[in-house]
Design a protein around this nucleic acid. Structure first.
Lengths: 348, 348
DNA sequence: CCAAACACCGTAAACGTTTACAGCACCTAG
DNA sequence: CTAGGTGCTGTAAACGTTTACGGTGTTTGG
């Protein structure tokens, strides 16, 4: 009693064997009378199955892990929001890992799969190293990777198409007449950093614009870092007229710094973010952003994983989610409802 | 090999007993020679401890659950952001539950504690019913509740002081000259809904303002619902000059609707949110909001739980986090850097 | 009426650990 | 030379389930 009823307690009280108790609890064919006795005993005792013992025997934990770089990043949260209900509906619990973008932590997570405390893993690694690939190859547990992975890696994979995404944004800026389009990126040794940097270069080239390395500024994928990067950029290249930011947080940092520097957005400098997070729609001015389909990617990843957990073997699959440019005030103009009223301010 | 090495595999290969293997792996005193052999065997086999078997024996899972109403709500995410690193640092994994604000799901989570798949739970229930209290009393697993709980409930508890929070906001609006201050609330049978509604009434009373039930509109704690509620309110009470919104999402919905209705914020209608989420700082206009210390509450809850997990018994504790009013453009005026430039628009 | 089939149940092994206990070899003290 | 340590190790039980297997007692078919 101090220690919670087990299947043994029930067996004793119901006067049957533990095997019968187990059978009843699992709905296996049993005589009505026995079912009744066991159920009654279980109810009276307030019995709840021990998930750990169950998992040990059945080799299934009904848990799935989601490993992301940063709990603070709304792009991952958008994934999480989609992943959670899909798993919940299928009867899986969600274990959350935030790796703080450090490779060792990601490797740790992969390594810990060996502990068998989850049935599967969805991971969105910032960097993909040789160590990642080795551990993926060795993993006995199903894994879905969100983000690009080298050709031929045998793993379920959900990708954004950030190359096309960046191109959409650059074309948009070009169409608006911008010619000094800078790139504010995160570290180049990250998967998104590298992809977006390369895409920027390509897009410029295809438009016949020169690639000026002064226009490229590397910071990190956070708001404050983004701001710092933009400040440096402005100091070096004062005539920049558009900022392609590698994510929304960087773009928000850019808005902060531009405002402080007295540059108008979008008149003086147009700003585009990426990921199209909630913050983009809510920001001031609202932020044009390239949606890379975070929500869709999360959903697809969860579904791929479930399929593999339930269905068993099949060839690894690759799902690519197309990007979409969402144009808002930071490039296109002003919020319609407010346009004509901005010169009548008084009340404080 | 098809099935992963166990302690037995190692024992065989190293030519020792499984007890010795276990001792080596747990760092218990063992002869150097044995340690060497076991380590070598473990390395060669790529052995990883099975967490499930370990938990069964040790009765500790090193997992902690966090149950919240809605993964989409930034206030809970702020808590999550603080909870995660605290638990991680202490060697616990985080299991996430989103109850979608339905009571049955919350009860389910409490019930599932009996499965012993976690060592502890942090829960932020939207409603606290008799069933909640019963299950809490019966729980063998440490629980920390974020949110108010009836006097005398024997459970660790972290609270916001939304009464003082609402008062800060109402006083602020009053000081700005507003006299028709409406309340846009969530369901009154939720813990925050009830508290904030009551606090609103009290604050008005203390200021000598009449309580006009036409000025109270009930919706739900989401952006779209908030917008709908405000639309109804505007139709019924066109002369309202301030909105006290029960959370930031409602306030954002309010901004949407006010903009569409051609009301200026803050000139015509001042708006205050609650929770001071990231969205408040990023919104347009930026949103004055009452911080209820979501981050601090999350941190405090995690620390309380760890203390209990490690320390053992002690009296249940109550931590109250003080609120803070963060004044931004939606009540106070305009973002300084932009004020003088808003009539020179041309570039599209 | 007997054999075979059947329905149900209990015994026991297994899942992969941790750990109490006892045994062994060696050493030290008397 | 023996008694009692000491240091290390192996055996086996335990954690709470699930499940293969064999053993009952009852039904059915010939």
């Amino acid at each position: 009693m101090a220690d919670g009823p087990t299947i043994n307690t029930i067996a004793e009280r119901a006067g049957v064997s533990i095997a019968s108790v187990s059978r009843v609890l699992n709905g296996l064919p049993t005589r009505q009378e026995t079912v009744r006795k066991v159920m009654a005993a279980a109810d009276e005792l307030g019995y709840v199955r021990n998930a750990v013992a169950r998992s040990l025997k059945s080799r299934r934990t009904h848990q799935v892990a989601f490993a992301m770089a940063d709990v603070g990043n709304p792009a991952y949260l958008a994934m999480l929001r989609q992943i959670q209900p899909v798993l919940k509906a299928a009867g899986y619990r969600l274990v959350l890992h935030s790796t703080d973008a450090v490779v060792a932590d990601e490797i740790d997570v992969l390594h810990s799969l060996g502990e068998r405390y989850v049935d599967g893993l969805i991971m969105s690694p910032l960097r993909v190293t040789e160590a990642h690939l080795q551990m993926l190859a060795a993993a006995r547990t199903p894994v879905v990777i969100i983000g690009s992975v080298p050709e031929g890696t045998r793993v379920d994979n959900v990708r954004a198409d950030s190359r096309t995404g960046v191109r959409l944004a650059i074309d948009h800026l070009y169409a608006l007449g911008r010619r000094r389009i800078a790139m504010v990126n995160g570290p180049l040794d990250t998967v998104p950093g590298a992809a977006r940097g390369a895409a920027y270069r390509e897009a410029l080239q295809d438009l016949g614009l020169p690639y000026d390395e002064n226009l490229v500024q590397i910071g990190d994928f956070y708001r404050a870092e983004g701001g710092r990067a933009v400040a440096e950029l402005l100091a070096r290249v004062p005539d920049v007229d558009a900022l392609m930011c590698a994510n929304d947080l960087i773009a928000l940092g850019a808005l902060d710094v531009l405002r402080a520097a007295g540059r108008r957005v979008p008149e003086d400098v147009a700003v585009v973010g990426m990921d199209d997070t909630d913050l983009a729609a809510a920001s001031w001015p609202s932020l044009t952003s390239v949606s890379l389909g975070s929500a869709e990617r999360g959903k697809a990843a969860a579904e791929l994983l479930l399929e593999r957990l339930q269905g068993g073997d099949r060839e690894p699959r690759l799902v690519t989610v197309p990007p979409e440019l969402v144009v808002r005030a930071s490039t296109a103009g002003y919020e319609p409802g407010y346009e004509h009223r901005t010169d009548e301010r008084e009340e404080a």
